[in-house]
Simulated assay, not measured.
Amino acid sequence: MTTIQSFEGPSCPLPLQHNETIVMGHGSGGKMTQDLIKNVFYPYFNSTPLSEGNDFARAALPESANLKGRLSISTDCHSVSPIQFPGGDIGKLAVCGTVNDMCMSGALPLYLTAGFILEEGFPIATLQQIVASMAAAAQEAGVAIVAGDTKVVEHGKADGVYITTSGIGWIPESRTIGGQYAQPGDVVIISGSIGDHGMAVLTARGDLGFEADIQSDVAPLNLMIANLLQAAPNTHVLRDPTRGGLATTLNEIVQQSGVGMILNETEIPVRPVVRTACEMLGFDPLYVANEGKLIAILPAAEAQAGLQAIQDSPYGDQAAIIGEVVAQPLKRVLLRTEMGTTRILDTLAGEMLPRIC
C-alpha cells in the first residue's frame, strides 16, 4: 500500500457515504489513496508492521524458531464470481487459501500480504465487507496482514475486485512434508465432505434453474494440521484439494511420489445436497473444488490417531480414511466403485467450473 506518514489508525471503521464507489483517483497514490487506506484497510488490518507506514514490513520469526528450520512461502491470485457466496466471499477465500497452502508444508503460518485490483465503480461498502471478512479469517488463523498494495483500473477492465495474497510461515527443523513423500502402505485421509465450495459458488450465480442450500467449506486449516501432526508426527503428505478437486490433486501426488493409489468410493464423504446438485448438472464431485478440506497421507501405524485428531478439530468431523498408497499401478489413481468395479481417476481435462477461486 502507498506509504502514509505518521498514520495512527482508527479503532473502528469510519462511516462511508451512501453509494460511494471506487474512482480512478483512489489509485492515484495521493490523498484519495491515503483516505481509502485509512478508512477501509487500516481499521481491519491493524498489525504493527503495517501501521509503521512503510513500503515493506519488518516482522520477527517466532521465538521457538531459534533461527532453525525453514521458511514456507506461498502466493495466490483470487478471482471468483460472485465475489460473495454462501459461506464466504473473495476476502475469506484469499486469506484461507494462502494460509492453507503454507500449512501443507507443516508450517506455522505467520504473515500475509494482500494486493487489491479494484475496478472503477466498485462499491466501497462491499470492499469494506470483504476486508472485514479477511480480517476475521486472519484472526481465526492467527496470522497478521503486514503489507499490501492497491491499484484501480478503468470500469470494464476488471470484474469488481481481484485479490492477491502472499504468505510466510515457519517450518520446524524436524518436519519434512511434501507431495513427493507418499509411500506404499500409507493411508489416505480426507478431512470432510468434498465438492462443497465449487457447488456453493455455482449455485450462488442463480442461473441454474434451481436452488440448493449449499455452503462453501472455505476455512483456515492450520489448527487441524497442528493437531494432526502432534498425533501423527510421521505424516508424509498434506495437500488441499482445491481446483481440480480430490481426483486431480491425488493424481498430482502419485506423479510426484512415483506411486499408485486405490480409493474406496463408498468411504468418500459427499453431502447428499452436493451429490444431487452434481447429478443434476452432470458434474463429478471428485473433480469439484474445495477450499476447506485436507488430504493427509501417513503411515498406517499412525492412521487411526491421525484420523481422530482431525475429527476432533474444527471442520474435521466428517473426516474419513478413503484409500491407500500402493506400488502398482505406477502413477495411477484407481477407484473401487459402489458397483464393485474399478475405475481409473484421471486428471481433470479442461475447465469444469470456471471462476471458483
Rank of each mutant, 00 (worst) to 15 (best):
C77E: 07
C77P: 10
C77R: 13
H78M: 12
H78Q: 12
H78E: 13
S79L: 12
S79W: 06
S79D: 13
P82S: 15
P82C: 13
I83D: 04
P86G: 09
P86Q: 08
P86K: 01
G87H: 03
G87F: 09
G88D: 07
I90H: 01
I90P: 00
I90V: 11
G91R: 01
G91C: 02
K92M: 08
L93W: 05
L93V: 03
L93N: 04
A94R: 01
V95M: 04
V95Y: 00
C96F: 05
C96P: 03
C96G: 08
G97Q: 00
T98Y: 00
T98H: 02
T98V: 09
V99T: 08
V99I: 06
N100F: 03
N100W: 03
D101S: 10
D101L: 02
D101P: 03
C103G: 04
M104C: 11
M104Y: 04
S105T: 10
G106S: 07
A107L: 02
A107G: 06
A107W: 00
L108Q: 13
L108S: 12
L110S: 07
L110A: 07
Y111N: 01
L112W: 00
A114V: 04
A114Y: 01
G115Q: 02
G115H: 02
G115R: 01
L118R: 03
E119S: 08
E119L: 07
G121F: 08
G121M: 13
G121P: 07
G121A: 09
P123K: 12
I124C: 06
T126R: 11
T126L: 11
L127T: 12
L127Q: 05
Q128W: 06
Q128R: 10
I130N: 03
I130H: 05
V131Q: 08
V131H: 05
S133G: 13
M134H: 09
M134E: 11
A135F: 01
A136F: 09
A136R: 04
G142S: 10
G142D: 09
G142Y: 03
G142T: 09
V143R: 01
V143E: 05
A144H: 05
A144L: 06
I145M: 10
A147Q: 05
G148S: 15
T150S: 15
T150A: 15
T150V: 15
K151W: 13
K151P: 15
V152W: 06
V152K: 05
V152N: 08
V152Q: 08
E154A: 14
E154W: 12
E154N: 15
E154Y: 12
H155L: 14
H155F: 14
G156V: 12
K157G: 12
D159L: 07
G160A: 10
V161R: 03
V161T: 14
V161W: 08
V161M: 11
V161L: 15
Y162K: 14
Y162V: 13
I163D: 06
T164G: 14
S166T: 09
S166H: 07
G167R: 01
I168T: 10
G169M: 08
